[in-house]
Write a protein that binds this DNA or RNA. Sequence first.
DNA 1: CCAGACGTTGTT
DNA 2: GTCTGG
DNA 3: CCAGACGTTGTT
DNA 4: GTCTGG
Length: 244
Amino acid sequence: MCGRYAITLPPEAMRQLFAIRGGIPAFALRFNAAPTMDLPVVRMGDVGREIALLRWGLVPSWAKSLDGGSLLINARSETAAEKPSFRGAFARRRALVPANGFYEWQARGKGPKVPHFVHRRDGAPMVFAALWERWGPPEGGAIETFAILTSEANSDIAAIHHRMPVILPPEQWDLWLSPSTALGALEALLTPAPLGLVSAYPVSLRVNSVANDDPALLAPAEAPPEGEAQAVPAPRRPGQLDLF
DNA sequence: CCAGACGTTGTT
DNA sequence: GTCTGG
DNA sequence: CCAGACGTTGTT
DNA sequence: GTCTGG
């Protein structure tokens, strides 16, 4: 779950949404944000909220290397506060991840999984609760990564999937980001979205390939009939050679 | 004491 | 880094 | 999350 | 089947 989302808010819109005072880094708009990409997150800096570009896929600070199995894109909200991989980040490095919405794949017994786009009914951006971590020497070469917290799905999308990202409303953003919020108060924020907040519709299978990243990914698509296959358009890079 | 794990997802 | 298992 | 690779030798 | 890359 939550292994893909869209974030296409222009920098200025994001500055206003989060009341960022300082400058913000340049970042690409993404209709198909995927793990290992550098994506904008909001966290507390020295002088209040800041936007930073972090790599999606949290690497614990004690990991021996950046590659391998140490790439944690989600953290279960039910257990993150105690897990060795997340505990430190849960206590001291919480973040918000802005999104237009997220993609969720619905398994359909036979045939391909059907991707859906899950968005707020009111059209507002959706903000995920997240944790971030730093790996490597502080002097330089350190990389910063993040993971998105998940909860049980609510009944708005339970027919599609059984987990969903934790979505925080604006009035909870300060509490989540503040370094002084008590552990119990933090855990109280990590609940499934209230009923009626979100809605979902099927989208094209083109979203399956991260090579596809365009506005058409958000367009509603016909849900394919049960058990019937649908062609997957093959992404093709310019300059690709035919070898045989 | 040292060695080894440390996570999520989904699927069966 | 910190905890668990042997 | 899904898609795509998964290998060696020798030669340029 | 399993791992890596995006």
